[in-house]
């Protein structure tokens, strides 16, 4: 079953094209990583999914319902953590958590106290004194305490320390094990690699790549390091070979996945003494897509 589906979703702000025919599908029970540079359209997409913005074209469905028309019914089953958590300066963190929970009609004190402990959060302070990380904790604790079917996180850990990041990951995994679905927009690639089943990469309002991490790796290059008995001349001119770098006793380079077979066959002629290969990291993927977008800003 599909939890989130967008079909040719477009959004214009005045003359600016914020989203251009975005197609996205999040399946039930999966963690979907939504990555892209600042201003690429991640938050705009999420805000349409939440019914806060009207799409200029296309459709957005959440839990099988229309994102705008059925917003209340949808929101009953989801929890959202915005990228920029703005809270009421005069309320305490504890009050805000209770407030958000009671908007859902949830009153699970045991679960809430457990989360406050796990995130090492002090609920007695006024929100105006909280740092960015602490404000994110407020929204995260409320979201995990509500225990909805669908979580939408917009860069939830950008203010958290590594220890708290791990706590966050623990609860995401717990939710997934319970069959919940999660949309995670993030910049922290190691987090996406660890948590996500599938990812979608968005740039300049267009979805440029989507699939499982394995799928995406297939589309890209593998890192190789070889030591050969005879030196390989003009390796950089071979088709499908990139970023050649001479080391003391060998050479490291990248190979396009679809050229792997031929390159390996030709390499064999030079007498391979040692070979190491590493899968492309998400970062390699990411950097390849980001380059050419002018640093990421619209």
């Amino acid at each position: 079953m599909t939890v989130i589906r967008t079909v040719d979703l477009s959004k214009q702000f005045g003359k600016v094209n914020a989203l251009n025919k975005v197609n996205m599908e999040v399946k039930e029970g999966e963690v979907y990583g939504f990555i892209g540079p600042n201003g690429a359209g991640k938050s705009t997409t999420i805000r349409i999914l939440l019914g806060m913005l009207n799409p200029s074209g296309g459709q957005a469905e959440v839990l099988g319902m229309d994102a705008k028309k059925d917003a209340v019914a949808i929101h009953r089953r989801l929890a959202y953590v915005p990228g920029d958590v703005n809270l009421w300066p005069n309320l305490t963190g504890g009050e805000v958590i209770d407030l958000l929970m009671s908007f859902h009609g949830v009153k699970n004190k045991g679960r809430k106290d457990e989360l406050i402990q796990a995130f090492q959060f002090d609920p007695s302070k006024k929100c105006r004194t909280y740092s960015k990380g602490n404000r994110q904790k407020v929204a995260l604790i409320a979201a995990f305490a509500i225990e909805p079917d669908l979580y939408i996180f917009d860069e939830p850990t950008s203010g958290l320390d590594p220890l708290m990041e791990r706590t966050f990951q623990k609860y995401v995994k717990e939710a997934r094990n319970q069959g919940k679905s999660i949309l995670l927009s993030s910049h922290i690639l190691s987090e996406v690699e660890q948590l996500c089943d599938r990812v979608g990469i968005i740039r300049d309002g267009e979805m440029i790549e989507t699939g499982t991490l394995e799928d995406l790796r297939h589309l890209t290059r593998t890192n190789l390091y070889v030591e050969t008995s005879r030196p390989i001349d003009n390796l950089e001119t071979w088709e499908g070979v990139h970023d050649v770098e001479k080391r003391q006793s060998g050479v490291s380079f990248q190979v396009d996945t679809e050229r792997m077979e031929t390159v390996m066959a030709e390499l064999g002629a030079f007498g391979i003494k040692k070979i190491e290969s590493a899968p492309p990291t998400l970062e390699d993927l990411f950097m390849r897509h980001y380059e050419g977008s002018g640093g990421g800003d619209r």
């Binding site: 939440l50 806060m52 929101h75 009953r76 929890a79 958590v85």
Partner: peptide, 14 residues
């Protein structure tokens, strides 16, 4: 305008 609508408006309240 202050961005404090994001959380309430994502709740099951019209």
């Amino acid at each position: 305008k202050r961005g404090r609508g994001d959380l309430p408006f994502s709740k099951p309240l019209s």
